[in-house]
Structures are given as structure tokens and as C-alpha cells.
């Protein structure tokens, strides 16, 4: 299945990724070959199967009890830029 360059550029935007022109050319070719293989899904007889049927009728729940989390400061140990207790990033809203 042929994918247009505009479509792939739009997908890149959704995925928060940036590609050079050469990388984009390569990606388009690869997409084509991969999506062509995916066409075998269209040959399948999928009548009678329900995507939303599950074995378990509901997930396990736990008691609605407050448990204190002790490790708060450790959670920030991998942040590149902190300011006081806050994570520093560029301005989000003008």
C-alpha cells in the first residue's frame, strides 16, 4: 500500500519525531514493503470474533486504603534540570 510523504510527515508530528529528507525517503520505502505484508490480514475470515470479549469480566481491585509513598525524592533522581522541588523545562504557555 502506497503511503504519501505528507501522511508520514503527519505521523512523525504525532509521534514527536523528526526525520531528515533522506530518512523520510527510506522510511517511505520500508513502510510500503511492511504494509504490503500486512495486506494478508484482508484475506482472513474474521466473522464471529469479537474484539472486546475477554476471559476476565473485570480487573482485580484493591482496598480503598491510603498507603503512604516514602520514596518521593528518589523519583526525581534522574531529572536533568531541577529548580528547588520542581522539574525545569522551557516555557510551555506564552
Amino acid at each position: 500500500m502506497k503511503v504519501s510523504r505528507e501522511e508520514v510527515e503527519y505521523i512523525a508530528k504525532l509521534a514527536n519525531l523528526k526525520f531528515s529528507s533522506n530518512e523520510m525517503d527510506k522510511l517511505l520505502k520500508e513502510f510500503e514493503s511492511i504494509l504490503e505484508h500486512f495486506e494478508n490480514l484482508d484475506q482472513e475470515d474474521l466473522k464471529g470474533y469479537d474484539m472486546y470479549s475477554f476471559e476476565e469480566k473485570s480487573l482485580r481491585t484493591r482496598e480503598d486504603k491510603v498507603v503512604d509513598f516514602e520514596n518521593k525524592s528518589e523519583l526525581f533522581s534522574n531529572v536533568k534540570k531541577m529548580r528547588d522541588k520542581f522539574i525545569e523545562i522551557p516555557k510551555v504557555v506564552d
Binding site: D42, Y49, D50
Partner: peptide
């Protein structure tokens, strides 16, 4: 990119939904 494409509106039915039904 492949995953984002398969989930994007317009392609969700053609790829992801079909794949999930086949999974059943």
C-alpha cells in the same frame, strides 16, 4: 511510526482493529 500510523484515525479500522480481531 508504524504503531502511530496503525492507530491514527483513518487507519485504525484497516490495521489495528483487524489485527485485534484476528488475535481473538
Amino acid at each position: 511510526m508504524l504503531g502511530t500510523y496503525a492507530l491514527s484515525s483513518g487507519y485504525y479500522d484497516a490495521y489495528y482493529k483487524k489485527a485485534m480481531i484476528f488475535r481473538k
